[in-house]
Amino acid sequence: MKKQARDPLHAALADATFEAYKSAVIHLPEDVVRVIRKSALAETSPVARGEFANILKNIVTAGQLGVPLCQDTGVPVVYLTLPPGTPYSRDLYDAIADGVHRATKEVPLRPNVVDPLTRHNTNNNTGAGMPAIHVRPGKKLTVTVLPKGAGAENMSRIAMLLPTEKDKIEKFVVETVYLAGSRPCPPVIIGVGIGGTFDGAAALAKEALLEPVDKMSEYEQQLLCAVNKLGIGPMGLGGDFTALAVKVKSAGCHTASLPVAVNIQCWANRHATIEVKS
């Protein structure tokens, strides 16, 4: 009996997901590399400069050997951009899962995804609601993979502030980084979500990590400056750069609330986007 051929779109999306995940865990985006190099040049602590040298060597070596930048290859967070006329169906989810299966086997990726209660591991980074897929409208069909490691993700927080507590946002961001200390492998990149709802603020904070980190608004620069006054420094050993960048995304919220979420990312702000062509 002949094996049924895969739908061309399914195959193309699976292949694009594989390529995006592979690229994300091996090669950092250029804007991320630029802020690391810029911070390394500006760092005044000899110990911190040594850690920056190790980070930059790590980036080069991963690319040369074609191996992941970090042993924690994360859990798959996927952003799917759908153009008009392309319906979101179960098959698109299955295609993305197939791409993650392949990446886990061939890159290879560490099988990180487990059931939250039984801790059963599928050994392919899917199942138990993974990969997490966020669908957005767009002109082209693209897939973006944002691998999220546990060291940084575990340090993320959310707060439901009062509408009158806008001035407490900076304090909450700084406090979150202070409590994280060395655990997320600083210097970190910080995604901040402001507004929306309880879950919406967290989604905004994570999506903010996809924004170019070598360009920041005045408010983002203000938050970065406040964080870097902590002096935690690279790998928690002290220095000028506890964080490399802060990126903020906001959305309208209820008149009676002010949700704020902080999603911490380590220096390896890994993500990659591939256009799907079928």
Rank of each mutant, 00 (worst) to 15 (best):
M130H: 15
M130F: 15
A132M: 14
I133R: 01
R136K: 14
P137E: 06
P137G: 07
K139C: 03
K140P: 00
T142F: 02
V143T: 03
V143Q: 02
T144N: 00
L146I: 02
L146G: 01
P147F: 00
P147N: 07
P147V: 03
G151T: 04
A152H: 01
A152Q: 00
A152F: 02
E153S: 06
E153G: 02
M155T: 09
I158W: 01
M160A: 03
P163G: 02
T164R: 05
E165R: 01
E165N: 03
K166R: 12
K166V: 07
D167P: 00
E170T: 11
F172C: 01
V173P: 00
V174F: 05
E175T: 10
T176L: 05
Y178S: 13
L179C: 09
G181M: 06
G181L: 07
G181S: 09
S182C: 02
S182D: 11
S182R: 12
R183D: 13
P184Y: 09
P184C: 10
C185L: 12
P186E: 04
P186W: 07
P187W: 05
I189E: 08
I190P: 05
I194S: 08
G195A: 11
G196A: 12
G200T: 14
G200Q: 13
A202M: 15
A202G: 11
A202D: 06
A203S: 14
L204P: 10
A205K: 06
A205L: 11
A205V: 06
K206F: 06
E207N: 12
L209D: 10
E211Y: 08
E211S: 13
E211D: 15
P212S: 11
V213P: 11
D214H: 14
M216L: 14
M216I: 09
E218Y: 05
Y219I: 10
Y219P: 02
Y219G: 02
E220T: 12
E220Y: 07
Q222E: 15
Q222D: 13
L223S: 04
L224E: 07
L224K: 01
C225A: 11
A226F: 10
V227S: 03
V227Y: 04
P234A: 14
M235Y: 15
G236L: 01
G236P: 05
G238Q: 05
G239P: 12
D240V: 08
F241Y: 15
T242I: 03
A245W: 04
A245N: 04
K249V: 09
S250D: 07
S250Q: 12
A251D: 12
A251W: 05
C253H: 12
C253P: 01
H254E: 09
S257N: 11
P259S: 07
V260M: 06
A261P: 02
V262L: 06
N263M: 10
N263A: 14
I264W: 01
I264N: 06
Q265P: 00
Q265T: 02
Q265A: 15
Q265S: 15
W267E: 03
A268H: 04
A268T: 06
